[in-house]
């Protein structure tokens, strides 16, 4: 397998305007295609905007619904990972990230960790997902952690021990923290995370963050693609729209894992036994 060009669409979706955002997707997919990318990743809820509040239920769609047909069509050209509000047949709505490939929706991740504190209110308007799965992506086995999911250390760990070569983190991260002598507070935290996970789990990390404002809150962008050795392959500007492109070579991960065989030596059964004991569950045989 040779290097795969990956693009992040660091865009500014309109809040609750699904059709307009579909049109925006067409433009970015076209740009990504022109850049030679085989996969384009959009930020969290790129088809709907983030601070939806009561709009969440209004813009929710079924994963196989006609509203997503344009995105399915776009994925005939190149793989598209993007965010939408998913309505389950049972009526619950989720923050979802779909991976579209070859004209169909190949995988959906439902955000598990819904931040409901400070400036966040996800838990009021959305149901929580309950699993982290890996799936075949354009750069090998991949896993998706939507924004807050990624801040929980167990999440990249679970996906890496499941064989993920790439961790995708679509986000709607609000910029805050303006103290002198540093980066934007949130940016510094995210960059630390991306680099740490990439290097210590020896995976690619693709952080796709949006820009633009919603009700006074600004999303800071700074999307980046980090290699399994922790090097930053590409980084988008802060606050401005940009297509962020990098070539991800799976062979790089393999070489890095020979040099730095942390994953090979990882003992998930110890974690399992520990947690089973801790939770009073029967120990596995």
């Amino acid at each position: 397998m040779t290097a795969v060009r990956v693009a992040v669409a660091q865009c500014a979706p309109a809040l609750g305007a699904f059709e307009r955002n579909v049109a925006m997707h067409r433009e970015w997919v076209q740009k990504a295609r022109s850049s030679g990318a085989r996969l384009v990743i959009f930020p969290e809820l790129a088809l709907t905007g983030y601070y939806l509040k009561d709009l969440a239920a209004d813009v929710a769609v079924a994963r196989d619904g006609p509203e997503l047909a344009p995105i399915r069509e776009l994925s005939r050209e190149l793989d598209v990972s993007t965010g939408f509000v998913e309505r389950d047949p049972d009526g619950r709505v989720f923050i979802a990230q779909g991976y579209f490939h070859g004209g169909r929706l190949a995988h959906v991740h439902r955000k598990v960790y819904l931040p409901t504190y400070g400036i966040f209110d996800d838990g009021r308007f959305f149901a929580a997902g309950d699993r982290f799965e890996t799936f075949d992506s354009a750069i090998g086995k991949g896993g998706v952690a939507i924004c807050e999911d990624f801040w929980h250390m167990s999440v990249p760990y679970l996906m890496a021990t499941d064989g993920a070569l790439a961790l995708f983190c679509p986000s709607a991260s609000p910029g805050r923290g303006i103290a002198e002598g540093g980066d934007l507070g949130t940016a510094e935290s995210c960059r630390l995370m991306d680099r740490f996970y990439a290097q210590y789990l020896t995976t690619f990390v693709v952080f796709a963050n949006r820009v633009g404002h919603e009700d006074g809150i600004g999303f800071w962008g700074g999307s980046e693609i980090v290699a399994p050795d922790g090097s930053v392959l590409a980084r988008g500007p802060d606050f401005d729209e940009a297509l962020v492109v990098a070539d991800c070579d799976p062979a790089l991960a393999q070489r890095e894992r020979v040099r730095n065989p942390l994953l090979r030596d990882e003992r998930p059964e110890i974690v399992l036994e520990h947690l089973a004991r801790r939770m009073g569950l029967p120990l596995p045989d």
Partner: peptide
């Protein structure tokens, strides 16, 4: 000292805020 800000960053954030909103 805790009140000190990165004025260059803040200026950029506020100009973007004004334009966008």
């Amino acid at each position: 000292s805790p009140l000190r800000i990165d004025e260059v960053l803040v200026r950029k954030m506020l100009v973007a805020f004004l334009r966008d909103e």
